[in-house]
Amino acid sequence: MAMIDVNGTTLRYEDEGPRDAHAVVMSPSMFFDVRMFRHQAEALGDRYRVVRYDHRGQGESARDVRENLDMDTLSEDAAALMEALDLGRVTFVGNSMGGFVGLRLAARRPDLLVSAVLMGTSADVEEQADDMDALVDVLAEQGIEPVLDGVLQFMMGDTTLTDPSRADVLAEVTALLRSRTPEYADAAWHIAHRKPVLDELGGIAVPVVVVAGTEDHTYPPPKSQQIVDLTPGATLVTMERTGHVHALENPVEVTELLERHLASLDTAVPS
Rank of each mutant, 00 (worst) to 15 (best):
Asp64Tyr: 07
Ala247Glu: 00
Thr231Phe: 05
Leu161Ile: 04
Gly120Arg: 00
Val117Phe: 04
Ala23Val: 12
Val269Phe: 09
Ser61Asp: 00
Asp33Leu: 00
Arg66Leu: 14
Ala43Ser: 14
Leu248Thr: 01
Glu16Met: 06
Gln226Met: 15
Ser179Thr: 15
Glu215Ala: 11
Asp149Cys: 15
Asp72Phe: 14
Val254Pro: 03
Met97Thr: 04
Pro221Ile: 02
His55Val: 10
Asp133Phe: 14
Val34Pro: 01
Val210Tyr: 05
Tyr184Pro: 01
Ser224Arg: 06
Ala80Glu: 03
Glu83Ile: 07
Met36Leu: 12
Ser29Asp: 02
Val90Ser: 05
Leu118His: 02
Lys223Gln: 13
Val93Leu: 12
Phe154Pro: 00
Tyr13Phe: 15
Val237Ser: 01
Ile227Gln: 08
Leu105Asp: 02
Val117Glu: 00
Met36Asp: 00
Leu257Ser: 01
Arg35Asn: 13
Gln225Arg: 08
Leu105Asn: 01
Asp133Leu: 11
Ala171Ser: 14
Asp266His: 11
Leu177Phe: 13
Val252Pro: 07
Met71Arg: 08
Asp46Pro: 13
Pro232Val: 06
Ala79Arg: 04
Glu141Ala: 15
Met82Phe: 10
Leu139Gln: 03
Leu81Ile: 15
Ala205Gly: 15
Thr231Trp: 00
Leu152Trp: 14
Val173Thr: 06
Val136Tyr: 03
Phe31Arg: 05
Arg180His: 13
Leu152Ala: 15
Phe31Gln: 00
Thr242Phe: 07
Pro182His: 04
Asp77Tyr: 05
Pro221Arg: 08
Val151Thr: 14
Phe92Val: 15
Arg47Leu: 07
Pro28Leu: 10
Met132Phe: 15
Gly8Asn: 07
Ala167Asp: 14
Ser96Thr: 09
Val136Ala: 04
Thr159Cys: 06
Thr73Arg: 08
Ala41Thr: 10
Thr255Gln: 11
Asp124Phe: 12
Glu145Met: 10
Ala263Asp: 12
Gly203Val: 03
Thr231Gln: 03
Met239Glu: 02
Gln225Asn: 04
Ala123Arg: 05
Asp229Ala: 09
Ile204Val: 06
Leu113Met: 10
Met71Gln: 12
Leu74Met: 10
Arg109Ser: 08
Glu253Ile: 13
Asp5Glu: 12
His246Lys: 12
Ser96Gly: 06
Arg89Met: 07
Pro270Cys: 12
Asp70Ser: 05
Phe154Ser: 03
Thr267Leu: 14
Gly99Phe: 01
Val228Ser: 10
Ala185Thr: 01
Pro207Arg: 04
Asn95Trp: 07
Val151Asn: 11
Glu126Gly: 03
Gly99Gln: 01
Ser115Ile: 07
Trp189Phe: 13
Asp5Met: 11
Asp137His: 15
Glu249Val: 08
Asp33His: 03
Arg241Ile: 10
Thr267Lys: 15
Asp216Trp: 05
Pro110Glu: 06
Thr73Ala: 05
Asn250His: 13
